[in-house]
Design a binder for these strands. Sequence first.
DNA 1: TCACGATTCTTAGCTTAGCTAATGAGCAAA
DNA 2: TTTGCTCATTAGCTAAGCTAAGAATCGTGA
Lengths: 143, 143
Amino acid sequence: MADRGTADEAAKTLREAIMRLNRRVRQARPVGDLTFSQLSALTSLQLAGALTPRELADVERVQPPTMTKIVGKLEERGLVVRTPHPTDGRQVILSATEQGRAVYAQFEKARNEWLATQLAALAPDERETLAQAAEILQKISRA
Amino acid sequence: MADRGTADEAAKTLREAIMRLNRRVRQARPVGDLTFSQLSALTSLQLAGALTPRELADVERVQPPTMTKIVGKLEERGLVVRTPHPTDGRQVILSATEQGRAVYAQFEKARNEWLATQLAALAPDERETLAQAAEILQKISRA
DNA sequence: TCACGATTCTTAGCTTAGCTAATGAGCAAA
DNA sequence: TTTGCTCATTAGCTAAGCTAAGAATCGTGA
């Protein structure tokens, strides 16, 4: 069985790789379009259907004021709408517009492109390892 | 062999996990201390021994002016020194000070803590998968 | 009922990260 | 020596993130 030392070592390697990959993927963004954070929020919103700002902030692991800004940008572009909560006057319901869904689908593809190209160039067993790892990482990232 | 569709799917999962993990790890930073980017630059510098700003920017996948700022912050804290290049008057040699190495070692441990804890909680085979994946991801991230 | 505490969202104001464009210094080669 | 290139930095911008504080609303206990 792996001991704690191994976990530390793997954590370090993983952390460094995550940081660099994050920068790489961010850089793959088409010029003049949605930023990484904006696309991420839009994605979470669509996956959930509709969320309050607080909920979206929690999902995105960001403080509410930060989400207010991000949503503001998305709303300016007509990709997200704020609608009043039916019973609670304090809350707001956020949802993606038709245009928001279209823009998302359009750029999601390009967004993955660099990474998918890298994955496709790997040996089959490496790719398999990464596919499994992706599931585990996603589980961790939601914890 | 895995087809392109599989790579796309894995890329998407990976990208989302990377983004959230990145935020998580950044948030694990001790208050009032080095930021993620600063620690990352300090790490790269130590691993390489000494680098010019340009080289460090390349390693960190950042534009030179961005690195100038980061190095400036590190220098203010006495963690990095700029020394003139012996033969080329345009260039500068960056290196970590003794204090820089100490600060790095001190926070590197805490930095990995959250992630290492997550990894330690996994099943042994999952941990093994992630350890292998970490190597592959690091390879990709340097490409 | 109503007053007060809690919750939700937003605003204000800040720091950091990142970019491009432009500047100045130094190198190298014609 | 002049011309063009490279390196680092400066200037100036946008976006991301934070905390603190505000206004509106909810809900509960007296």
